[in-house]
């Protein structure tokens, strides 16, 4: 896998996430994120690693304002979305695909309908109600389901699938948004090791195929090393490390996670 930010130079609006001095306090005076800044752009997959409770989840939710940041700015493909509300915020969120740890599928709907949920930001509510999605969306959804090997499950209920299959549906739903950027919050934490690898492969390959920068929260350092081209180490609300996985040393890990016995 080769990664080169410039290879996308032909498309004028560079697809990117740019986070600028982002801070978040749930309780006044006790920041969970302190002055975070980084940029992800082009065909790039970036992992955020760090111990649990360090604000990884909060950080990724600040990107699409599921959690409003206390201060700082978030730019998606150059557009500042920090102060958007209502309809403008919805329009901005359409550009941000998101994959969740617990898949967050609507269990009682069919796989097809879950995938088409990714189009809800584009389709008027009455069409969604009558399930009169545009034929183009349905064709795309079928093609996508075929490419991830779930075509035969399209008309089944989502709760009949296994964990790995559900996460694939979750990913397909995010891709259906035709997002500019893709966020993944611990996408493999609820899965077994083999399925985890398959899901990471799928995420990275779709990100490459559709040319979407990918930002993944992940606590599994090995998976991060194996599948991403850049690692951001987060600890106590600040960035400890930001660089290629090859240069991530045990010293860094000690600093990020604390202690050292677990490294042996």
């Amino acid at each position: 896998m080769t990664v080169d930010a410039q290879s996308d130079g032909s498309a004028p609006p560079q697809r990117s996430i740019c986070i600028e001095n982002l801070s978040k306090e749930y309780v006044r005076g006790k920041p969970i994120l302190k002055n975070i800044s980084f940029t992800v752009q082009g065909q790039s997959s970036v992992a955020i690693i760090g111990p649990s409770g360090t604000g990884k989840s909060t950080l990724i939710r600040c990107v699409n304002k599921l959690i409003p940041p206390t201060s700082g700015n978030v730019y998606i493909s150059g557009e500042n979305i920090t102060h958007l509300t209502g309809r403008d915020l919805r329009m901005a969120r359409r550009k941000i695909g998101m994959v969740f740890q617990e898949f967050n599928l609507v269990e009682r709907l069919s796989v097809m309908e879950n995938v088409l949920c990714g189009r809800l930001g584009y389709v008027p509510s009455w069409r969604a109600w009558l399930r009169k999605y545009p034929q183009n969306d349905i064709d795309n959804a079928f093609a996508l389901l075929e490419s991830i090997g779930l075509l035969e499950f399209a008309r089944q209920r989502a709760d009949s699938l296994s964990g790995g299959q559900r996460q694939r549906v979750g990913i397909a739903r995010a891709i259906m948004q035709e997002p500019h950027v893709l966020l993944a919050d611990e996408p493999t934490s609820s899965l077994d090791p083999k399925t985890s690898v398959e899901i990471m492969e799928l995420l990275v390959s779709l990100s490459g195929e559709h040319d979407i920068p990918l930002l993944i929260n992940i606590h599994d350092v090995e998976l991060a090393r194996r599948f991403t081209v850049r690692v951001i180490g987060l600890s106590k609300g600040g960035i400890i490390y930001d660089g290629p996985p090859s240069e991530l040393t045990n010293d860094h890990l000690k600093q990020i996670y604390g202690g050292e016995n677990w490294l042996q």
Binding site: S110, L116, L144
Partner: peptide, 15 residues
């Protein structure tokens, strides 16, 4: 994303 329109996947939903 371009769909492979040549293929017919049948109806999207079970009636």
């Amino acid at each position: 994303m371009t769909a492979d329109t040549a293929k017919n996947f049948g109806p999207a939903f079970k009636t």
